[in-house]
Simulated scan of single mutants.
Amino acid sequence: MLKTYVITGGTDGIGRAIADTYLERGQEVVVVGRNAGKGEAWLDGARQRGAAARAHFIHADLSRLADTGAVVERIRSSCAQVDALVLCARHFRTTRAVTADGFENTFAHFYLSRFVLSHGLADLLESADAPVILNIAGPGGEGEICWEDLQLAREYDGQRALMQGGRLNDLLGVAFADARPGTKVRYVLLNPGTVSTSFSGQYTPDVMARIDVIRRSAQPVHEAMVPIVRLLDAPPAAPLSAFVRDVPISPHGPGFAIEEARRLHLHTTRLLADWETGTTREASGAGKSRTHIGTSN
């Protein structure tokens, strides 16, 4: 049976390995990426393997909400169902940057886009027999959520932004399952460990030197793929699950508190509603009233 796999960050690293794996298995694969050249190279490879009809590339910058929304609409207009949504896209920034929408870049790219894609494609996932969302974001991390400054306007650090983003994605998974009792969709949070990929991002020379050291000792992509393929082929029975590589961890511990997940979900829906009505500015904390969400202090 032909299945449809949607993969963000699918032109490089783990995302590309997943895309290639399922394309070679004869499945329909939709890759989303910001680099048009890499996207065309992936399509060229598909054509050479005789799989051009099943390979699709959507050029999008997922730090931009308009681009993310356009991805959702394009998939909805061309796909009857989505069997797997794999969220891999990540981009590190040593220095803080604000998108044209007024959001901190890591918050927008690493969290907001995954929220919009998860919820925006939920009904297409429900149309599949055994649908799964695989969110590769590092569950179980020790990052602290700065509730009063989610976009780190006051004390930005690139690693801190990524670690907080991992925590926000944990809560995204909790809230997704909480909002859909009885859903067929299995939400899987995965920390693949340190993998030797391109480490997409903007780095200072000293940080890049540390990344080069990490890359040399990191596991190769083909090793990281083993538990990923296993989870995609046979999603867990529970609506929400979390793994560090192939080791399950409880999605009910302190880092997965339902109260925090609901708080974040409410804040995010309000933030997106304000953006859609054109009132969003650079956001500060989740503890503000709706009229102040998106307004810098």
Rank of each mutant, 00 (worst) to 15 (best):
Ser127Asp: 02
Arg16Trp: 04
Pro235Gln: 11
Gly182Ala: 10
Asp44Cys: 04
Ala161Asp: 04
Glu259Asn: 07
Leu85Arg: 10
Gln164Lys: 05
Glu282Trp: 14
Gly141Ile: 01
Val116His: 10
Asp274His: 12
Ile75Ala: 04
Arg263Ala: 00
Thr204Met: 01
Leu87Ala: 07
Ile136Cys: 03
Gln151Thr: 13
Thr279Pro: 00
Thr106Glu: 04
Phe243Ser: 05
Pro139Asp: 09
Ala153Leu: 14
Tyr111Trp: 08
Ala238Gln: 15
Val82Met: 10
Phe92Asn: 02
Gln159Gly: 08
Leu271Asn: 06
Val32Thr: 09
Asn191Ile: 01
Ile14Tyr: 09
Leu189Asp: 10
Ala175Leu: 01
Ala286Pro: 00
Thr21Cys: 12
Val32Leu: 08
Cys79Ile: 00
Leu2Ala: 12
Gly165Cys: 07
Leu272Asn: 09
Ala179Ser: 13
Asp233Glu: 15
Gly33Glu: 02
Thr21Trp: 13
Thr68Glu: 03
Glu28Lys: 13
Pro254Met: 09
Glu104Gly: 09
Glu73Val: 05
Pro192Gln: 12
Cys88Gly: 01
Thr194Lys: 13
Tyr5Ile: 10
Phe110Gly: 00
Pro239Met: 07
Ala84Leu: 09
His267Leu: 11
His267Met: 07
Ser200Arg: 13
Met163Glu: 09
Val72Leu: 04
His109Arg: 11
Pro239His: 11
Glu73Lys: 15
Gly165Ile: 02
Val29Glu: 11
Tyr22Ile: 04
Arg114Met: 00
Thr95Cys: 05
Ala97Leu: 11
Ala36Lys: 15
Ser118Arg: 10
Leu117Trp: 12
His59Ile: 04
Gln164Trp: 02
Asp101Val: 13
Ala175Trp: 05
Thr204Glu: 07
Arg281Asn: 06
Asp129Trp: 00
Ala52Ile: 05
Ala60Cys: 12
Ile18Leu: 09
Glu259Gln: 12
Val6Met: 04
His91Pro: 00
Ala66Val: 14
Arg215Ser: 02
Val86Met: 10
Phe103Asp: 11
Met163Tyr: 08
Ser118Val: 03
Glu282Met: 13
Ala100Ile: 09
Ala80Leu: 08
Arg215Gly: 00
Thr95Lys: 15
Leu43Gln: 14
His91Ser: 03
Glu28Pro: 00
Leu2Val: 13
Arg90His: 00
